[in-house]
């Protein structure tokens, strides 16, 4: 089934988008990463953004998560225009409403797994003991039990990435943005990480925007859009 080429084009009678991007343009120096990309992310869905290397997938994710501001176009979330918000507000939004997972690097190497997961809660003002307790529960949910006091460098890639997912979800965000979350993992670890992410997202009703070039990973999504030359190709439902 093929849909229109914009974010607001929804499939069937589904809910309105949680987050909408319209005509995004973003250049890195002289290279145009996005050339009028539009996309919608609905509450509770898992959306895969695929495309060749250099097609602008990561830049699109960064714009949607309010990590970078587009040169033109708009990103709307809950009535807010993200490109108009001050950095402090965006930072707060990423801490409370969004979760972010990258291929690697999001865990602080010097903190233990449980302290890494507890960090967003500490920043929100939760006490250390309570933050650690809740972080421990999330690590257990992601099957990283018994590794709480290990540092990221002492964990396997799959364990570290599951800890990163736990950190992204611990505040109960409305949307999680995952940029090649399994890019550095083998197929078994990829399966473990994606199963955990898909299961938890569906259970909690969290929307997930997944950037990947891996068909195995994209198969976990409800919907897949393809980026080509900085623009979104017609949407295709994969599930």
């Amino acid at each position: 089934m093929t849909h229109g080429d914009t974010a607001t084009a929804t499939h069937g009678t589904a809910a309105p988008p949680l987050l909408t991007a319209r005509d995004l343009v973003k250049a890195h120096g002289r290279t145009e990463a996005l050339r009028g990309a539009s996309l919608g992310l609905r509450a509770g869905e898992i959306l895969a953004v695929t495309g060749a290397s250099g097609s602008g997938k990561s830049t699109l994710l960064h714009c949607l998560a309010g990590i970078v501001r587009p040169d033109a176009g708009s990103v709307t979330y809950g009535g807010l225009r993200l490109e108009e918000l001050p950095e402090k507000r965006l930072s707060e939004l990423r801490r409370t409403d969004f979760g972010v997972v990258f291929q690697f690097g999001q865990l602080i190497p010097e903190l233990t797994a449980v302290d890494n997961v507890a960090l967003p809660l500490l920043l929100a003002g939760t006490t250390r003991a309570e933050a650690r307790a809740r972080a421990g529960e999330w690590l257990e949910r992601f099957g990283v039990r018994g590794q709480e006091e290990l540092r990221p460098g002492e964990m396997s890639g799959g364990q570290a990435q599951r800890a990163a997912l736990a950190r992204a979800l611990v505040t109960g965000p409305k949307a999680v943005f995952a940029d090649e979350p399994t890019g550095a993992l083998d197929s078994l670890a990829t399966e473990q990480v994606m199963t955990a992410l898909a299961h938890t997202a569906r259970e909690s009703g969290t929307a997930v925007l997944l950037v990947t070039h891996d068909a195995q990973v994209a198969a976990y999504a409800d919907r897949e859009v393809r980026l080509r030359d900085g623009a979104v190709s017609p949407l295709e439902v994969t599930a």
Binding site: R94, F98, Q106, I108
Partner: peptide, 16 residues
Amino acid sequence: RRTLAAQVAAGVPHTV
């Protein structure tokens, strides 16, 4: 800086 950039992207304020 890459790790720190990831922290900023995840919402950890610069002040912290």
